[in-house]
Design a protein around this nucleic acid. Structure first.
Lengths: 342, 342
DNA sequence: CTGAAAGCGCTTACAG
DNA sequence: CTGAAAGCGCTTACAG
């Protein structure tokens, strides 16, 4: 009798009289042993409550059947953003098809690198990670394939992106076409300055905004255009909106780089008695489901988060299978005009 | 030179001239070897691109530093439900604190049991799982601690629940107090009949509705009360609402067992020119963030999903540490009256 | 400070 | 059909 601990294959060997080989076959290749052996082994296993340990099994098989998902901010902030959960959903649905498990890797004590190092996954998908970030180095050390969503498409890593610059330009043009000139641009700030050092996505969206504004003869920032930075959450949006209001500079439109921020803005505007779009038009970016649920509907850019997740996962599995790099891709976006911009 | 494959500790031993013990120490207990050895080893490792394999490491250490989360439906349907992502967020935030990784385990080819068996996790949290379900047996076989959210509190498994019966009674009473008598009750159906065989949560909510209705002299189903079943998604809600409308029986209020369903109903009602709450009042259950974002705000029951996730995770970690069972808990709920019920 | 060796629990090519 | 044995890549108690 073993003292305590888990029941292992050895216990079954002892009790059944068969070898480890046979016990293993009983579970994984039942056809390769005699009916008698199989029944004896399975019955002993059943009796002792044995089931092959999957960690040991995976180790022996040298595979993990698991892919990892790295979030840009803490898990909590990230999962409160419907855009991110939609990406997660896309990745997850592919994992489910492939019979892989999906592991979310949160920063360990502020260190994403540490978390990455200790995770056992076959491949990794990152969201909003830049090649220069410290964590990128940790991933490379693991020598596992990875693809990046909303990272830098120029970074040499297979990536899935939206054409952020063009998309941002289009939505800003739409705002300008409606005659707005006093515009608040609401950019994205890292949750804590440590995590998101810098994001090229933000740069590209800002560029797009600037182009459109420049075409209208406006500079950004400029006499009629102010730039704010908001944490990427509902609360962040509320805070930013309050700032816009506090500075009372006659702003008639707000363009936020993320729907979740735009939603927060709308909440705060409304709470202050501001009517949308009558007093202040509001535009977002992402087209999360909430954008169409609320009234007035949020004018935004659709970048089908779920497709991005799905594409990234497919690319990763392809890399896992062929061990060769995949070309980066840009998913289509679409300006979605609803009622929040007038 | 090893042919190809990954670089292992053996390669470092060969190149550095130090033993496996020293190499291991260099990474995990740098203080236990000489500065010289450490530097030599680390430099060789750096040069060869070596980093200890975490699967092997975890195997040797007999731990996985990972907990699993089992969803009631497919990953896709589940992650589209803000209630579920909020639960996930709660669990995730505790994992992050504990420096654990969080693995989502989707059904493998329709088989959750198979997925559970192959996952390597230290513990498991399930959502909406019943003790009689087949997968419960698979979990027991693994001999790992688990706690269940929205499962059966009578199942003998440490669980986190809302007092569903009371909560459902309260919201139905509220609807009745506003004078409604022609009421559509919208229950939850499994995504596909295979997965959710039966859920005691649904039973308890239904009981609560029935109690309130009975107190008002109404039977359910009855002459003025009809029961519908909806898949737990926005689309499910829309379909159900359309049914309600198609049967045109003078319904003036709909009570859905889930906010996501209620939201779908509201969308469909609105699309059909029905005004809420003027023509049809709508009540939900969960209090997802969207409930307060939309206009009119959704009257619902708050059951703080995030707290449920957090509590379950804390219970699980406690079990992992003490190896003893935890008492089940019931989290407080609260009726949240907004404008969708008048 | 350093290393030889046992051990973690499985899988599987190979020989019988 | 069956089993002895090597191997997956690490960690660590123990002895020197």
């Amino acid at each position: 009798m073993k003292s305590r601990g888990r029941i292992t294959i050895q216990d079954i060997v002892r009790e059944s009289g068969y070898s480890k080989t046979s016990v293993s076959f009983a579970f994984n290749s039942p056809g390769r042993i005699s009916r008698k052996a199989r029944e004896k082994i399975l019955s002993v296993a059943q009796h002792l409550g044995y089931y092959p340990d999957s960690l040991a099994r995976n180790f022996s098989l040298q595979r993990r059947n698991c892919i990892g998902f790295l979030l840009p901010h803490g898990l909590s902030v990230s999962l409160k953003n419907p855009y991110i959960t939609a990406v997660l959903e896309g990745i997850g649905s592919v994992c489910q098809e492939k019979e892989y498990t999906l592991t979310m890797i949160p920063p360990f004590g502020e260190s994403l690198s540490k978390a990455v190092r200790s995770a056992s996954v076959d491949g990794l998908i990152t969201l909003g990670m830049e090649a220069e970030m410290h964590v990128a180095e940790s991933i490379r050390l693991k020598h596992i394939p990875y693809v990046t969503i909303d990272g830098n498409p120029e970074g040499g890593v297979p990536s899935v992106n939206t054409d952020d610059r063009t998309a941002a330009r289009e939505i800003m043009e739409h705002v300008l076409n409606r005659g707005h000139r006093n515009i608040a641009v609401i950019s994205i700030a890292g949750a804590n300055e440590g995590t998101a050092v810098h994001s090229s996505v933000i740069d590209r969206r800002m560029e797009g905004y600037r182009e459109a504004l420049a075409d209208a003869g406006l500079s950004c920032p400029g006499p009629t255009v102010r730039v704010y930075r908001s944490v990427c959450s509902l609360e962040g949006g509320r805070t930013a909106a309050q700032q816009v209001l506090d500075e009372s500079w006659g702003c008639t439109a707000a363009a936020a780089m993320s729907d979740i921020i735009a939603l927060g803005c709308m909440q705060q505007f409304r709470a202050s008695g501001i009517r949308i779009p009558h007093d202040i038009s509001t535009a977002g970016f992402d087209n999360i489901p909430e954008a169409s649920i609320i009234a007035p509907g949020l004018t935004t850019v659709d970048q089908s988060a779920s497709v991005k997740g799905r594409s990234a996962a497919r690319m990763l599995f392809h890399m896992l299978e062929t061990r060769s790099p995949e070309p980066s891709m840009v998913v289509p976006h679409k300006l979605v005009m609803r009622e929040s911009v007038q």
